[in-house]
Every structure is written in structure tokens, then in C-alpha cells.
Design a protein around this nucleic acid. Sequence first.
RNA 1: UGCGGCGUAGCCAAAUUGGUAAGGCGCCUGACUCUGGAUCAGGAGACUAGAGGUUCGAGUCCUCUCGCCGCAGCCA
Length: 561
Amino acid sequence: MTKTPGPDFIRTIVEEDMKTNKWNGRIATRFPPEPNGYLHIGHAKSICLNFGIAKQYDGECHLRFDDTNPAKEEQEYIDSIKDNVRWLGFDWGEHEYYTSSYFDRLYEWAVRLIESGDAYVCDLDAEQIKEYRGTLTEPGRNSPCRDRSVEENLALFEKMKAGEFDEGSHVLRAKIDMSSPNINMRDPVMYRIIKANHPRTGGKWCIYPTYDFAHGQSDSIERITHSICTLEFEDHRPLYDWYLDKLGEHHPRQIEFARLNITYTLLSKRRLITLVEEGHVDGWDDPRMPTISGLRRRGFTPESIRDFCRRIGVAKSDNTIEIEYLEHCLREDLNKRAQRVMVVLNPLKVVIENYPDDLEEEFDAVNNPEDEVMGTRKVPFSKELYIERDDFMEDPPRKFFRLAPGREVRLRYAYFIRCTDVVKDDATGEIKELICTYDPLTRGGDAPDGRRVKGTLHWVSARHAKTCEVRLYDRLFTKLNPARGKRGRDWRTNINPDSVVILNNCKMEPFIECMKRFDNIQFERTGYFCVDPDTTPEKFVFNRTVSLRDSWAKIQKSQKK
RNA sequence: UGCGGCGUAGCCAAAUUGGUAAGGCGCCUGACUCUGGAUCAGGAGACUAGAGGUUCGAGUCCUCUCGCCGCAGCCA
């Protein structure tokens, strides 16, 4: 078991608050996704944080859908988010909320701010508002509508609500300070007109609050104690405080942390949507996607993702985690739980010339050396077998421990065999099959004379083999930081054209037929795989989750240098 | 040139009220092994962005400099 890291800076704050009884001993966090796309592993970090803290300090964690923009949000996303959070192993209990449930209250609050002279209806269009806002270094200018009377504002806002104006023609703005060094305080938009059907409120509204006008108040309404969010909202905190102060409402404590970045991976919702919509991947659950659904289909376990999130920690400094670290957490988990089987990905036929033609034997194979409880199974053996093409070389380099002409290796759980001949296609020179002899005395895999072999190969009896499909995945992007195209080129140029290779003629041992969709298994010596939902009674389809650590590949690499 | 953050080994990340730099991943050795997997045992690697200052003593306090990230949606 890995050691549990000490409390991160957020938990330190929570613990301090508990100690001082700041919230009367109550802890409430929330995970507030916008249902405009699928959750990805960056969200998992936030989910683990928020639900984790609630669990650890005996508090509650709300699942709140930030559904303030019906132009982008869909029920499908709401459903997928709930599935994903549940799959990750978290439970929000009764605490399922929607910002849209607060629309009436938000509207009343907006009216109140108009009445107190803190908000006004602005007729400027988007372009003009932008102009008036100023820049990072120059202050903005007041809108010509800024000094409208309360009565006029009330009337105008009412008309906005009644649908009398076109989209974009009017907005409600907070009257704060157009010369504030914090751009968020330069009379931010509170309400805009969007004439779209909302998944939950239907056609009731045609004006919708902006995220900034809704988020802080939603936290307040739900009596959240710790509003944990990412760094980019640091600049918004003064705005949320301003609204809550003006309204005289409960202030949660907002704490910002650095979002997750992973090498060779894109974690921006906008770009993930693009990948799906432009067909660069086969949907949100494509095993190459960093979405929770994608990771699941790839063969990740919830435990491995949670462990990853725990081990990377939480801090405020920008970070990029090496993708290998995620893979490490995955392997560690899979190693403990995955059923071992033998599957030959690129089959090369082996004929054992001194083995009886119609003899069949069965060998006991260990299901998981890490977990004796998982028991053993029978693996059939016969005269003709398949081994991995990569496990044979006619002219092997140094440190190649596998099969070669004249060399002896062990077939796992079976016999020692020696290669006596290589049969090739005369025309192409391609190796068609290998002729070998076996040593009957090595039955079970050990030589009574104490003779050792350097290599042990996995194999499948040709007569008993089932053909299956295996999809080998590689990283989706070729660059460490895929968001940055070379010299301003589009990020799409970083997509790896070889991110998936489909093998159609793989040979598996018959035992595997009892496996079910999403089951995690280890193909011995090759990697971890899972049963893809595309599997049919006629044909198994596997996804390679992650390869085994491969020190031979490492040796090859260093030999090339 | 504005505001807000951040800067501890290749990547993460700790360091109670200032006391003399945890841990994980990766890397290198070796052991063991019927998965070149796993496991086990060792090891290398940080003048804590830089420069001053306060102090007996600073990653931790002060000053200045440099670098990186975010912000100018009627997205969230």
C-alpha cells in the first residue's frame, strides 16, 4: 500500500476551519459542471477533491449542474456526467442541484440590484461593450446607458424578460467601476437574452444569468462552505463577493487550485468537442479520449484514477503530469486484479515435428500470480501452435532472449522447444512457419536435468485458438504539449495519425470466452487489455489499455543509439 | 506599461510558530523470477528562479530583479 500523503493546502484550510468551528462544524463542497460536454480526467481531479474532502470531514458534496446557457447544454451531457461521477465511485445522495432551479431567485436578486441602483440595462451591442471595456492597460468608459433611472431599468428588464427584444440587443449589467484594474469589475453582464429552449425550464425564460452572476449565489443558496475552483477564477472572486455583499448573503470561502495538465493530452472541453464533432475520434467514449467515458472504455479502473488524483496532489503552481505517471497508477492497480491469459497478437505458426499428430494435452496456468485466490485454469496444447512473430528472429542481436534458429526456449506452462528449421515463402522471403522439436521431459516447464532457458514465450494451440480483434492504442497527440501548434499552426496538426492500430487475426486461448464487457485482463508478456463493448458472440474485441513495462524495448532503444 | 497568481531535482510535491531540504514517478545498480512483468535491496540527482537584507540561523520574514501562467465572451 502506498503511503497516504499529508493534507494539501485546501485540506489544511478545512482542518483549520473545523478547529475554529468557523462554519459551526459543517463542511459542504460541490462539483459544479456545465452540461456542455463530457467529463475528463481534469474533472476527475476536482471530483476527487470535492467529494473526497466531504467524505473525509464528514460533510456533504453537491452535484450541481451549471446550466445557465441553453445554447450549449444538453440532457445527454447531464446523464453522462451523473454516470461518470457514479462510476468514479462517488455519491451525491440527495444533493443533486441545478442552477436553473434558482432562476426565479436570481431574477429577484437582479431586480433588487436594479432597485438599489447597482445594475442597469445596457443597449450597447457586444462589439460596443467590448470597445467600452477598455484594455488590460487602459481603463474603460461608462456606457451611455449607465445613468438610466431605476424605473426605466426596471421597465426595460421586464421587457427583456418578456421577450420583446432581440438576442444581443440588450443586457443587464452590474454598475461597478469601468476603470477597475480588474476587468471583471468593469460593469460585467448579469443577464443576456437567449431565445433557446432550456433542457429543464423549457420555454419559460428568454433571459439567462451569466455564470458570474449565478455561480457565487448558487454556492450561497446551497450553503456551501468551501467553493473549490480552478485558478482562472481567482480574478472573479472580488465580483462574487461584490454580489453577495450587495445582496447581503452568505459567503462561502472560495479556494483556487491549479488545474491538471498531462503530457501528450488535451484537456480543454472546447477541443475535445472538436475532436468528436470533426470525427478525429469515434465519439466521446473513444478509448483514446481523456474523458472518463473514454478512459473507462480503454480499461481504466475507477480505483486507478482515484489513486492517480490522490498522488498528484493539489497545489497552486501550474503543473504538467507526465502521462507515464497515470499509466503507472493504472498498471499498479491492474497488476493486482487482472486475470492473466495468453493471446498471440501477430501469430507465427510453430509445428512441433516430434509431437504426436493427434495428441492433446492440458496444462494448469496461474490466473494471477499476485492473487492466489484467483486460482488456475486449463490451457490446451497440441502439435501446431502460434507464437508471437516478435518472439522469433533469424539473426538475433545481443540480449535477445527469445527464439532463434537452434535456440531453446520455454513455452509457458508447457515444454521447452528448440527451433530446427525456418519455412519461408520463396517469393517474398516471408517466414511462413517454424519447425521445432520439444523435449518431453520438460513437461510443465522445468527440465529435470536442471537445464535453464533464457526466454519464456506465450503461445496458443492452433487447433483450439479463437480468432479475435485487438485494438492497439497509442497517444492521440505527437507533441508533449498538443495545444501549441508549431509556429502558430493549428493544434490539430499535432494529432497522431497512428493513434490506433487494429489487429484482426489475433489468436486467443479458449478460456477467454467467459470474459464479459469491460473486464480487465492481462495478455501475458504483452499488456493489459479489456473487453470492448463491440464484442459479439462471434468475435471478441479487445482494447489495449496499456502495455506492460517493456525493458526489452528499452534495451533496443539504447542499442540503436 | 494594468490586475491576479505561481517559481523547491527530468515530472509531481512536502517542510509544525524561521533551526539547517520528506515522499512518489522516472533514472542507475544488484537480487530474485516459468510474464525481459511483478517484487525486494541499494544508489545518483536540489547551492529551494536570482541578487541583496534582517537573524546565531531563512525555502520559510523584508526589498529589488527575472521568468512563467491567467484575465479584455452577452463561455464556464
